[in-house]
Amino acid sequence: MTDVMKDPWAKLRAATPARIGLGRNGAGLPTGANLEFQFAHARARDAVHSGLDVDALEAELSPFEVIRVTSAAPDRASYLRRPDLGRKLWAGEADKLNARTPCDVAFVIADGLSSAAVQSHAAAVVHAASAKLEGLTLGPVVVATQARVAIGDEIGAALGARLVVLLVGERPGLTVADSLGAYLTYGPRPGLKDSARNCLSNIHGKGGMSYDQAATKIAWLTREALKRGLTGTGLKEESGVLDQENAPHIGEA
């Protein structure tokens, strides 16, 4: 039941990334397949629990001005147990953002549930998207740690931004542990519902959305949102770069 059993499955295995045709010993998973699984799970857990290297991220974001803030969640364990804390700024952090010239668009980068996703993709997406936002004023890039999507509302309001583009590490899966999501919110202010945002998900390098595709969609949504004065269910993404319908929705917010 090892090689003899596996070969007939080769054709089927090509049809799906699912873990099929693994073979078995009795009802047990073969050692190799078992360790492969453990590796994938370990990588996903590391993506959740590793801290974001903000210095490295700031260097990559150059020449943008970067402001660092933390959420009200004091550590990872609190962050995971208390989504409400990850959605608001630590007391006093808003002071770093006040008294700025109002801008059209502010990028916010939140570590979310995968610092690996943010580390790998966030700066590249900011650069690619901002290049397509000619004619609009951009605020500083705010990097928020222990942060969830809704923290962008408070940040955007404090900055006086008309719209916030928040990039966030999505809940890691076994196959892809570094998937980035982007949430666009017009008129950011605390208390907005998720239905008031537009979302792109699955920005990553393993068959996901490319930086350029993401940037095109972000730019299209940004311009339409500013023109129409809204984001959310009233604004359908129609830039037509790729069919988003099959993208699984990952419940990060």
Partner: peptide, 23 residues
Amino acid sequence: PGADDIMLNYQSLSFHDIAYLRN
């Protein structure tokens, strides 16, 4: 398959696990 749901991005039981319970 292999306890890994590649669409919903979470882990459940594998087919092997069901066989283990029965065996």
